[in-house]
């Protein structure tokens, strides 16, 4: 395979690490040196030629090729079989409605959350249960990290350069989860968004850090939704009031109450859509009274429609917790879902 990336020679593994760190090519952690063999193996697994154009970042007018993504995937620790997820994720991130430059440059400091659905989760042994939003498995950790390294090295998204985050959050190291489809009767997130069942897909979300809630003292679905909605309202008042793609991660203990009551994902979306809204006047209660002005009674919804709320089944078996993951900045960036291996310009034989 003919690779175009420039070659470096270092005396040993340790020297390679120092070279990468000295050039600002890492996220602060060690990397796997991207040798031609390892990079080629990723490309061969995904059946992609090195020059394959994954997309163009419009603000920087910079093309993203499969070879450059593969280099960063190897650096992050990806195996060849992980690489299709990296390509799919970046394809989703390059969709115009995702607003990649804004999401990666903003002072707001969001990370890019990847949500994986379909058979590929099982093929890659992605963990969907215990500690799902923390350290879990090789594929989740490496794919999430590959995205960050690619942003650093292909688009200069380094702190203080393109990345202007005031604070950022730990998800910027890696922020990739898979849905627990086996333990949920609901359609997966990808099925909801693509309208196809059993499809492997990645959803990319410009996302803030997770906010955890707990309600172990009710089995009433509306009360559980109210706890979730209260956290969303809190985010609207404390962080950003604008409507957008919120994610709610529901573990089995809370999911069980919804299943037992016969609730679908639609029911949860509709309930939270109705509950999660605030009046502008409430800003007075949180130190933002100066911007209420004469619009105290104006109501702000957390989502423009119930479908903007993304309900994801995941988490360990015990604990009445849920995680609310807010959007970076309202609808400036919209979540995008892309099927793994989809060819948008293939000719039908």
């Amino acid at each position: 395979m003919s690779l175009k990336s420039s070659r470096l020679t270092t005396s040993d593994f340790a020297a390679a690490q120092e070279t990468y760190h000295a050039n600002g090519w890492t996220d602060g952690l060690p990397i796997i040196p991207p040798t031609p063999d390892l990079v080629s193996a990723c490309l061969e697994w995904a059946l992609l030629p090195p020059e394959h154009l994954v997309g163009i970042e419009p603000v920087r007018e910079r093309s993203i090729t499969a070879e450059k993504l593969a280099v960063n995937a190897v650096m992050a620790g990806c195996l060849p079989e992980h690489f299709p997820l990296v390509v799919t994720a970046f394809t989703a991130m390059l969709a115009p409605e995702f607003l990649l430059h804004g999401a990666t440059a903003s002072t707001g400091g969001c990370a890019i959350l990847l949500i994986v659905n379909g058979p590929i989760r099982r093929e890659l042994e992605m963990v969907t249960t215990f500690n799902v939003l923390g350290n879990t498995d090789r594929a989740s950790a490496a794919v999430g990290r590959a995205i960050r390294l690619a942003l650093i090295n292909l688009l200069d998204v380094r702190p203080g350069e393109i990345d202007r985050s005031t604070l950022g959050h730990p998800g910027k190291f890696s922020y990739c989860i898979a849905e627990d489809e086996e333990n949920s009767p609901w359609p997966s997130l990808a099925e909801e968004r693509l309208g196809e069942s059993a499809v492997s897909a990645v959803t990319a979300v410009a996302a803030m850090a997770p906010r955890q809630i707990m309600n172990e003292w009710t089995s009433n679905p509306e009360e559980i939704c109210e706890t979730i909605s209260a956290e969303i309202r809190s985010n609207q008042l404390h962080y950003s009031i604008w409507a957008g793609n919120y994610v709610v991660v529901l573990p089995p203990q809370l999911r069980r109450h919804f299943f037992d009551a016969g609730w679908s994902k639609d029911d949860i979306q509709n309930c939270i859509f109705n509950q999660a809204r605030v009046k502008r006047g409430s800003w007075k209660e949180v130190g933002k009274g100066s911007v209420v002005k004469d619009r105290a009674d104006r109501e702000y919804l957390a989502m423009e429609s119930p479908q903007e709320l993304m309900v994801v089944a995941a988490g360990g078996p015990a604990g009445g917790f849920a995680q609310i993951i807010p959007p970076w900045l309202g609808t400036k960036s919209r979540a995008t879902t892309v099927a793994v291996g989809a060819c948008v310009d293939c000719e039908v034989p």
Binding site: R60, A105, D156, G160, E161, I162, R164
Partner: peptide, 9 residues
């Protein structure tokens, strides 16, 4: 510095 960087790129 962000503006200078964007102008450069």
């Amino acid at each position: 510095d962000a503006a200078e960087l964007m102008a450069r790129v």
